[in-house]
Computed example of a mutant assay.
Amino acid sequence: MMNLTVFSTFNNITYISSQYYQLYQNAKLVFFAFIIFCFCFFIYFILVLLVVYFTTPHVRENARYILFAHMLINDTLYLSLGLFLCLGFGFLLYIPVPICYVLVNFAAATFRITPYNLAIMALERYVAICFPLKHIMLCTARRSYFAIAAMWFVGWLPNVADFIILISSVEVKFFSRNLLCRHQSLLVLPAQNTIQFSTLIGSLILVSLVILFTYIKVMLIARKTGSGKSSASKAGRTLILHGVQLFLCLLSLTSSFSELYQGDFYYFVILINFLMFMCVPRLLSPLIYGIRDSVFSKSIKKMKMYSTN
């Protein structure tokens, strides 16, 4: 499915030879500490940006910042769930199937929503640059909230289909089990894997086309203006960064091949995949807007000044 690598493991726990056991435990703790540090830094930066968003009235009415704040909240939910399940696997935490199913599907939905949000943000920049006179009318706060609702509706559709197939095909006793919470444990029918994989591929291809289309259109406007400091040029650079985020999401698909390795250090493969392909793309979002955007950068500087005084 969407290659939520944090959920990937195997049913039979691999027993590590005694000479590597202590090294394995120490390395696991180091990885845990590093990932938790990155997560705490991410949460801190997200909270700073959300404070700016919720305390600045004109920002809360801007479609661009509404979509950005939604992306921050969505990515925070995804990484929180991912970290919990990652730690749960590392400490061999067995979870009842119904709870595991809810957690995995919620994480799957938030994973899908990230590229949807990127596509909507790219379209907003496209309208702002190519149709500036219509931007205020088309990109309103109300339509932004409608777009967010549509993202969540589309993001949950594959999960609804998966649930219908699962409850109509498996025995009730399946839901009474406790297991190490991973996505593969919940894939008991080929149709489930087909639905999830095809949905992910289709979504990423569609979002890629949207970002490519908007980038070409915006850069054509930038070329006409002939200024590297024009709003069109800045929007083009933002779209490039969105493309990088999407590319990293696409790379997460390749982690399924690395997870074919099931040796003694299989868990480290999971941790590396989670850090590189799940955390890094979502760490780019606050960096793109928190550092480059003038509204957020000025507000953050003011907050620093107040804190030092």
Rank of each mutant, 00 (worst) to 15 (best):
Y24S: 10
F10I: 15
D75E: 06
A33C: 07
K301H: 15
L186H: 07
G228E: 05
L246S: 07
S227M: 13
Y65T: 00
K302G: 10
K224A: 04
F111N: 11
H58G: 09
F42I: 03
P158G: 01
V51C: 07
F197E: 03
Y126V: 07
L133Y: 07
I148K: 09
T5R: 12
K134L: 07
S8Y: 13
F42D: 06
Y266R: 07
L212T: 06
G290I: 05
K173I: 08
N74S: 11
I165V: 10
L212M: 05
L248A: 00
L85D: 00
I272W: 08
I270G: 05
Q196N: 06
E61K: 05
Y267K: 06
Y78A: 13
Y306H: 09
L241V: 07
F163H: 10
L138I: 15
A222D: 12
V269D: 02
I270P: 01
I221H: 13
L241P: 03
S307F: 12
Y94P: 03
C139V: 04
S233C: 07
Y15A: 13
F68D: 00
L79A: 10
S307N: 15
I164Q: 09
G263A: 00
L133R: 11
F146C: 01
S8D: 10
K28P: 10
I35S: 08
Q22R: 11
M1Q: 05
G236S: 06
L220K: 15
N26M: 11
F7E: 06
Y266S: 05
V244Y: 04
S185G: 05
S144F: 11
M303Q: 14
W156T: 12
L179T: 01
F89W: 14
K298V: 15
T254G: 13
F89N: 13
Y266W: 09
Y65G: 00
A232Y: 02
S17K: 14
M2K: 11
I300M: 14
I216V: 10
F274P: 01
H135K: 12
N62F: 01
A109M: 04
S256K: 10
L251C: 07
G228P: 00
A235P: 06
Q192W: 05
I165F: 13
I164C: 09
A27E: 14
